[in-house]
């Protein structure tokens, strides 16, 4: 089957993907375009539909509606072709726990058509590359989280697929292991791979991804480069805690007037948060507050978090989205 070169600029093209589990529309019309040779981040809270989306793109789940193509090949009609072009690493696509690291890599290499001796060489090379040689024969039960992820990733790279799906590659890893994982992913990209990764951490998408799609409740709510996204939520946010909660309204008015932005008020905590587009004007705000005789208990500047991206883009916090969707999605994957 041949395809015109024009479709090949995109590693991933998804149009209106829909997946429903029972009454829950886990993925509700997602469009994605991932350019070949780039890292694309899909950012969203638990249950936003990230894993479901990847599962459909990786031919593990059948979309209820919509279509997707990997390097121009339809995921449903040419699923076997697509499987030759992708590597999948995630919380789900894992390795066989009863086998050792070497046995796993040899098994997958053999399944991918390598001869017995080629498979051994491949397993050896990959273990070395991912610093797992010392643990090659140990049972996987004794592997740390970071070692498990590395082995998972190594297993996805046997066929050197031009597109790699990484589903939350660093969730649950300690900061040091997370950095190592990021280095590995960067190295991967330098060899010409296209990477589509999902994450709950804005920081991670920021570090790795050329473009980011923010998804929530199965929909893409924002798409762009990390700078574009951050610009939309403000580089950082200013957080004020007041000595007297009765001043909250006055402060809100002052912020709207001086900073020209719409702050978020948490009356219970006596806290008020505002996007900080222009740090210079904060001084003016503070002067205004002093002139009005309003006392602050605490003042801090917070970098944008996923929570704020969410608040800004959806008008809702991460927690709401999580409690609504997680339970049903987790259950339906079994």
């Amino acid at each position: 089957m041949t395809y015109s070169a024009s479709t090949s600029d995109w590693a991933v093209e998804a149009d209106g993907l829909v997946k429903t589990f029972g009454t829950n529309r886990a993925v509700d019309g997602i469009d994605l375009r991932v350019a070949t040779g780039t890292v694309y981040g899909v950012l969203g809270p638990n249950g936003a539909g990230k894993t479901t989306t990847i599962s459909m793109l990786a031919t593990l789940l059948k979309p209820d509606a919509g279509s997707a193509r990997i390097f121009g090949h339809d995921v449903q009609r040419e699923s076997q072709v697509v499987r030759q072009l992708i590597g999948v690493t995630g919380q789900y696509a894992s390795v066989d726990e009863t086998l050792s690291a070497t046995e796993n890599l040899v098994l997958f290499s053999r399944l991918l058509g390598l001869s017995s001796s080629q498979a051994k060489v491949k397993a050896h090379d990959l273990l070395e590359e991912f610093h797992l040689t010392d643990a090659a024969k140990r049972p996987l039960k004794n592997f740390s989280g970071g070692m498990r992820r590395r082995l998972d990733l190594a297993a996805s790279l046997i066929a050197q697929p031009p597109l790699i799906f990484l589903d939350e590659p660093t969730t649950g890893l300690d900061p040091r292991t997370r950095m190592q994982m990021w280095d590995t992913i960067r190295r991967l990209v330098s060899t010409g791979s296209t990477v589509l990764l999902t994450t709950q951490y804005l920081d991670e998408a920021d570090q790795l991804a050329d473009r980011i799609a923010v998804i929530d409740r199965g929909r893409v709510v924002a798409e762009g480069t990390s700078n574009e996204l951050k610009a939309s939520v403000g580089e950082s946010s200013l957080e004020l805690r007041l000595a007297d909660n009765r001043d909250l309204d006055d402060v809100r008015v002052a912020i709207e007037r001086v900073l020209g932005v719409d702050p978020t008020v948490s009356p219970e905590a006596g806290r008020i948060t505002a996007p900080m587009n222009n740090p210079d004007r904060v001084t003016e705000l503070l002067v205004t507050l002093r002139e009005e005789g309003i006392h602050l208990a605490e003042l801090s500047v917070a970098k944008p978090t996923l929570d704020e991206v969410f608040l800004t883009l959806t008008g809702r916090g991460v927690d709401d989205a999580e409690t609504e969707n997680t339970a049903e999605l987790e259950g339906s994957r079994a």
Partner: peptide, 14 residues
């Protein structure tokens, strides 16, 4: 079939 490795098998061109 309940294990994660089955998903990997399903993602392979086998």
């Amino acid at each position: 079939m309940d294990k994660g490795v089955f998903d990997r098998f399903r993602s392979l061109p086998i």
